[in-house]
């Protein structure tokens, strides 16, 4: 088997900003002393006049972005998910969400795959927080191709967008000529009739690998990539539920309030179907290498397959 290309979606974010920056002079990037980690350093190098380091002051950075957007700029606010969605929640809600301003929030280092830094920096609650804000688009891309497409789509969309990126290098799975990114449109990556695995972010590639294991065990799983958690592709979710009668969601986020909750809300109201939410089970993370943590929290292919096999016995 040839070596799969791996790249962290935070890298994709920085690279996409540089590309977009060349095309659009009104694009500005804000950082809170983390440009090296959020990977916006490449934008800073290419467009120093359009990169604004706000220092370690995320609340102010969020408000500055709001103000700049009222004057015609399209700001991308960059910091870790913990601070973008957590510390600055109320600034995002009141200074960006309520006036529905054209600000994009580039949140890197989401989920437990932050790794060694541990629980204080592993945000497993950001999707829940951002999803609850009226009018906020929430995107969690699965790989480099999707992340770059998502940044472009976020720029083109007028209104607030929360973009969730990871620290860990993840396999490129969407590198095909017919790949198309559309906000709010999920993608069926594998057909199957026994169950549907609806995944988001880095869990999409793990779900695809898990589906191979399931196939070896006689279970044909449909695998759906939901890159946009809000607005959710309800049609696709309902169609998969009707077809397979058994749904699993997989995300590197708390089982409370994230993709699993979004899917549960839709199915509960419109198409009651047996559902299992696979994610971080209402606990804080811990320190350790990212891959080891994904394994320990059973969010890698092995853990996902094991859980589905047990549930479908």
């Amino acid at each position: 088997m040839s070596e799969v290309k791996r790249i962290a979606t935070r890298e994709s974010y920085g690279n996409a900003l540089v590309e977009l920056g060349k095309e659009h002079e009104n694009l500005v990037v804000l950082d809170a002393d983390l440009a090296a980690a959020t990977k916006t350093g490449v934008f800073k190098k290419a467009f120093p006049g359009r990169h604004i380091d706000c220092g370690i002051a995320e609340a102010n950075m969020t408000g500055v972005a709001a103000g700049m957007s009222t004057c015609g700029f399209v700001p991308f606010v960059s910091t870790f998910a913990m601070f973008a969605a957590g510390r600055s929640y109320e600034q995002v809600r009141n200074s960006i969400g309520y006036p529905h301003l054209n600000v994009k929030i580039g949140a890197t280092h989401a989920g437990i795959s932050v790794g060694e830094d541990g629980a204080s920096h592993q945000c497993n609650e950001d999707i829940a927080l951002m999803r609850a804000i009226p009018g906020m688009v929430v995107i969690n891309p699965s790989d480099d191709v999707e992340a770059r497409a998502a940044v472009r789509a976020a720029y083109e969309y007028v209104g607030p967008v929360y973009l969730r990126f990871g620290r860990l290098a993840v396999p490129v799975i969407n590198d095909r000529p017919d790949y198309k990114f559309e906000i709010g449109k999920g993608v069926t990556l594998r057909e199957g009739s026994d169950c549907a695995i609806i995944a988001t972010g880095l869990c999409v590639s793990e779900a695809l690998a898990a589906a191979e294991t399931l196939a070896e065990n006689g279970i044909q799983a449909e695998v759906i990539n939901i890159h946009t958690i809000k607005p959710l592709d309800e049609e696709l979710v309902i169609a998969a539920a009707r077809k397979t009668k058994r749904v699993f969601t997989v995300e590197e986020h708390s089982v409370i309030g994230g993709l699993g909750a979004a899917v549960a809300e839709v199915l509960g109201e419109k198409c009651p179907t047996k559902l299992t939410r696979i994610g971080v089970n209402d606990v804080f993370g811990e320190s350790g290498p990212a891959k080891e943590l994904l394994h320990k929290y059973e969010l890698d292919a092995e853990g996902i397959a094991k859980r589905i096999l047990a549930e479908m016995k």
Binding site: T62, G63, A66, G67, M68, T70, C71, G72, F73
Partner: peptide
């Protein structure tokens, strides 16, 4: 506490 930050953003944009 939030308005002054937005004002800073407007001033910087200017």
């Amino acid at each position: 506490g939030q308005g002054l930050s937005a004002a800073c953003g407007m001033a910087l944009a200017g």
